[in-house]
Design a binder for these strands. Structure first.
Length: 419
RNA sequence: GCGAUCAUAGCUCAGUUGGUUAGAGCGCCGGUUUGUGGUACCGGAGGUCACGGGUUCGAACCCCGUUGGUCGCCCCA
């Protein structure tokens, strides 16, 4: 490769072949399932004013403070390539009058951008599927959303992933718990890992997630959210869990599960591969394939009226890794032109077959003698060879399967082509 | 932001202790063979050994730097 050829941007991917098929399978399955739950398709801008994300996610979060692709446009306005979907959808809910549709169920998918060190299952341009319910305060919304996520994973053929569920309580519960955690960990700060000492100031909830052996001894006795939940918050969570049971969604309680972004309240969840499973191995160190929760406080941070909402997003690349490589669809017909003057017969025939929804490849270049072999290597259901007999086109048909309908279609196409 | 590791043909990889003109398989192109045939054989194209310095009589190989890939920490989907 010439050194003049520009290299791809770090953390971007060119997805091809079986991997691209897996990617498409995830998106197609999501589209099918979201229709079953009547989530409406929306298309969102890839960039927004920077403040949309800064105010939604929280200025101190890693995503906002060091991972956003922000730039000034030619008018001098600070814009940001979206690092997630929720903030933009919330903005649209407020600016486009979507309140009139509340409770509104929407779904979308597309590229997101975060400036991170790439590694397995983590890219700078990555892709998510996303589902949100806006304007629904009831636990039933959480249940339906999770039931959809669960069904999606099952329909993708992923069975070794489990819903880990927690509640962060309402705003007051969350703050009280947070304060108690800070008090508890501050007392032993000297024995914590450097990272957790830093978290103590910025994001104390995250200490509960620490994998550092120095932190582990203190985790078990740390204050639990349950002790700080208001009566309403407890009742809400109980309704979610009983709803999940009724919906047949398996879940486990994960008391230390917190979400990184500031806007989460009440229900928080992640679908995580079971330990030692094939999915866990396929994902490497990335554990979450689908995550989300309730974000009742978000609309207010964008200047809107208090509006309850809940949603999730899942990484398409990560789901595709669990789905594994998928074969491209088999070619229906390969036409090998073994007599140069009759290549137009093949073109005409291909057109006829394609109009009838059959996939066709025409092999009419390179060594005449090797064209049949080339066609055979495409592994088609049928090979049609076009040769010459006394100046007239003549055909040979070879098949590896029995398909009378396709067989007839080929003969019809042939008759059509030679006339 | 931190750490580990890697970079040779379009792809997967060999390449001895630093020693002539850098190799294989696959793929691609052509020829021969076969002649309802995915075979076999022969040939061809394709390389500034990631890039830039250094050491040396001599560097794909040793040293330094840069860029990029991969994996992990952090964070997250």
């Amino acid at each position: 490769m010439s050194k003049k050829t520009p290299q791809p941007v770090r953390g971007t991917q060119d997805i091809f072949g079986a991997e691209a098929e897996a990617f498409a399978f995830v998106v197609e399955t999501f589209e099918r399932v979201r229709r079953l739950y009547r989530f409406r398709r929306v298309e969102m801008p890839v960039f927004e004013k920077t403040e949309v994300f800064a105010r939604s996610l929280g200025e101190t979060t890693d995503v906002v403070s060091k991972e956003m692709y922000s730039f000034d446009d030619r008018g001098g306005e600070s814009l940001t390539l979206r690092p997630e979907f929720t903030a933009g959808i919330a903005r649209a809910f407020l600016t486009d009058g979507w309140q009139q549709y509340a409770p509104l169920k929407v779904a979308t998918h597309g590229p997101l951008f975060r400036y991170e060190r790439p590694q397995k299952g983590r890219y700078r341009q990555f892709h998510q599927i996303d589902a949100e319910v806006i304007g629904a305060a009831e636990p039933q919304a959480d249940v339906e959303l999770l039931a959809m996520a669960d069904q999606l994973l099952k329909e993708l053929g992923i069975h070794d992933v489990t819903l880990h569920l927690n509640t962060l309580g309402d705003g007051a519960s969350r703050e009280a718990w947070r304060a108690a955690l800070v008090d508890y960990f501050r007392a032993v700060a000297g024995d914590l890992s450097e990272e957790s000492q830093e978290r103590l100031e910025k994001n104390p909830l995250r200490i509960l997630d620490s994998k550092d052996p120095r932190d582990k001894p203190f985790l078990a006795d740390a204050p639990k959210i349950d002790a700080f939940l208001s009566e309403e918050a407890s009742a809400f969570f109980a309704a979610v869990t009983s709803g999940l049971d009724a919906a047949g969604v398996k879940w486990v309680r994960a008391e230390s599960l917190v979400r990184g972004l500031d806007y989460y309240r009440h229900t928080a969840f992640e679908f995580i591969p079971d330990e030692g499973s094939a999915s866990a191995a396929a994902l490497g160190s990335q554990s979450t394939v689908l995550g989300g929760g309730r974000y009742d406080g978000l609309m207010e941070s964008l200047g809107g009226a208090p509006t309850p909402a809940v949603g999730w997003a899942a990484g398409i690349e990560r789901l595709a890794m669990l789905v594994g490589a998928r074969e491209e669809e088999r070619l229906d017909v390969a036409i090998a032109v073994e007599a140069e003057p009759h290549s137009e017969v093949a073109i005409s025939m291909a057109r006829h077959l394609r109009n009838n929804r059959y996939s066709v490849e025409v092999v009419s270049t390179g060594s005449v003698k090797k064209r049949f072999d080339k066609a055979a290597k495409m592994n088609p259901a049928y090979i049609v060879s076009v040769s010459d007999e006394a100046g007239e086109p003549s055909r040979g048909i070879r098949s590896t399967v029995t398909d009378e309908v396709l067989d007839d279609a080929i003969k019809t196409a042939w008759a059509y082509a030679i006339n």
